[in-house]
């Protein structure tokens, strides 16, 4: 929709031009959220697309995803075959409420910064041990785990004027076997529960729960857990009232589905190992 309070667009072409953030400024990446709701407090758009960051950089140590990389670009990336977890990318994209048309505009960084519990790029990045590179307006930068970047429902660790520059997925996570399950109230609908598991070659399980909880939850098992161990760890980490609730799913159901789908993820990864 038209953002009629916006009176200016700034299109910085380098980092130096990014400084000068002030109240009423909004960083514009894909725009798919910014333009989807009234933004009466926004006066200026700072268009990050003019910075022309390379969308994807494949390195020995993993994948660097620019915050402005669109979901479509990420889905269509030609990734090394050794990255066994790569199918998670499109699987997570398909868990977005938005269709492939929105993937053409929406960015990975935008999905993280919005910090919705159902943000499927959050699920992906947290599930694959991603880290976030943040640029502060004073020219400094810092790197934190994606798990720590999201601090709650619609809350992030971003400070005023700070931006998410890039997300790094380490090769150690990308080369693992991965499994994913999602529950939604409607077919191809918004995630109410999204569980991702990865298994290192030496055994164990990294289980990441999103959508069912206000902020991503990670459980680490150094050895392959059995069903009871997995369920007990979830119960210990998430009391019944820790689950998220909104119109996209009742709290008790999200809890039950988290247990149910986590067990499926655990079993799939354990079974694959046996085979």
């Amino acid at each position: 929709m038209d953002l009629n309070t916006v009176t200016a667009v700034s299109r910085p072409r380098d980092r130096a031009a990014l400084s000068g953030w002030t109240e009423g400024d909004a960083f514009l990446a894909g725009g798919t959220w910014l333009f989807s709701e009234p933004q009466p407090d926004v006066r200026r758009l700072i268009d990050l697309s003019a910075l022309d960051w390379p969308a994807l950089t494949i390195g020995q140590d993993g994948l660097e995803i620019a915050a402005t990389c669109t979901i479509a670009q990420l889905c269509h990336a030609d990734l090394p075959p050794a990255w066994a977890a790569a199918p998670l990318i499109e699987a997570c994209a398909r868990c977005l409420m938005a269709s492939f048309k929105v993937w053409n505009m929406a960015t990975v960084g935008g999905n993280l910064c919005l910090a919705l519990p159902a943000g499927a790029m959050i699920s992906l990045v947290c599930g694959l041990d991603g880290t976030c590179l943040l640029w502060a307006p004073d020219g400094t930068e810092r790197r934190i785990r994606a798990l720590d970047f999201i601090t709650g429902a619609s809350r992030t660790d971003l400070r005023p004027g700070e931006i998410l520059r890039a997300i790094h997925l380490p090769a150690t996570a990308l080369t693992r076997r991965a499994a994913m399950r999602q529950a939604s109230l409607s077919a191809l609908g918004r995630s109410a529960v999204l569980v991702i598991g990865t298994r290192p070659p030496e055994g164990g399980l990294s289980l990441t729960v999103t959508a069912a909880v206000p902020r991503p939850l990670r459980l680490e098992f150094s050895q392959d857990p059995d069903a009871a161990e997995c369920a007990a760890a979830l119960a210990a980490a998430l009391p019944a009232d820790a689950y998220f609730e909104d119109v996209h799913g009742a709290r008790d159901w999200r809890r039950a589905m988290t247990l149910h789908l986590s067990e499926q993820v655990r079993a799939e990864l354990a079974a694959g190992d046996a085979a």
Partner: peptide, 25 residues
């Protein structure tokens, strides 16, 4: 709000929801 698709157009051949697309772009 980008949800119904009635405003779909193509920009450089790619379908987008034009209600979400910044016009200046």
């Amino acid at each position: 709000t980008g949800d119904c698709g009635a405003c779909t157009v193509h920009v450089d051949g790619a379908p987008v929801h034009s209600c979400l697309y910044p016009a200046f772009r």
